[in-house]
C-alpha cells in the first residue's frame, strides 16, 4: 500500500511538472483519493475519433505497480476493443502484458494508440469488430465518427 502511494505521488508530481509535455493527455488525480484518477485524451488525428475529447477513469489497485490499473472509457466510443456500455477496454498491457515500468501517462498513450489501431479480432464491441472484419472500413469509420460527434464533442447549438 505504501509503495503504491509513493509511486502514485511520484507520478502526480511528474504530471504536474510535465503538464504541457503531452498536449493530447490531461491526467487529473481525485482530490481526496490518490487511487482514483481521470484523464482527458484527444482522439488521434486521421481517425474517426479526431476532434473528440474522451474521458477515462482509472482505478488503481493496492498493489500497483505490480498490478495494472483498471481503466474505462467514461465517454461513449464506438471501437472494437471498448465495451459500448461499460467502457471496459481490451488491451494486453492492461492485463497479461502489464509491466510495472508503465505509468498512468504511458497507459493513456497506449489507449490513444489503440484508438488509431483497433484489433477487430479480439472485440468487446462485436458490431464494431464485425464491420472491420468484413472489410467495411467506411461503415466502421462512419459509425465511429457519428458517436464521436454524439458523445465526445461539445454540443453545437
Amino acid at each position: 500500500m505504501q509503495a503504491s502511494r509513493a509511486r502514485l505521488f511520484k507520478e502526480y508530481k511528474e504530471v504536474q511538472r510535465e503538464k504541457t509535455a503531452d498536449p493530447d493527455i490531461q491526467l487529473v488525480c481525485d482530490d481526496s483519493n490518490i487511487f482514483k484518477w481521470t484523464a482527458l485524451i484527444k482522439g488521434p488525428s486521421e481517425t474517426p475519433f479526431e476532434g473528440g475529447i474522451f474521458q477515462l477513469a482509472f482505478s488503481v489497485p493496492e498493489h500497483y505497480p505490480l498490478q495494472p490499473p483498471q481503466v474505462r472509457f467514461l465517454t461513449k466510443i464506438f471501437h472494437p476493443n471498448v465495451h459500448f456500455k461499460t467502457g471496459e477496454i481490451c488491451l494486453d498491457i492492461l492485463k497479461t502484458a502489464w509491466s510495472p515500468a508503465w505509468t498512468l501517462q504511458s497507459v493513456c498513450r497506449a489507449i490513444i494508440a489503440l484508438m488509431a489501431h483497433p484489433e477487430p479480432d479480439s472485440p468487446l464491441n462485436c458490431d464494431s469488430g464485425n464491420l472491420l472484419r468484413s472489410g467495411d472500413v467506411k461503415g466502421y469509420q462512419s459509425m465511429a465518427r457519428m458517436y464521436t460527434r454524439l458523445a465526445a464533442m461539445p454540443k453545437k447549438g
Partner: peptide, 11 residues
C-alpha cells in the same frame, strides 16, 4: 444524448 459520465456509477 449520452451523458459523459454514465459509466461513472458503474465504475
Amino acid at each position: 444524448p449520452f451523458s459523459q459520465n454514465d459509466a461513472d456509477s458503474f465504475l
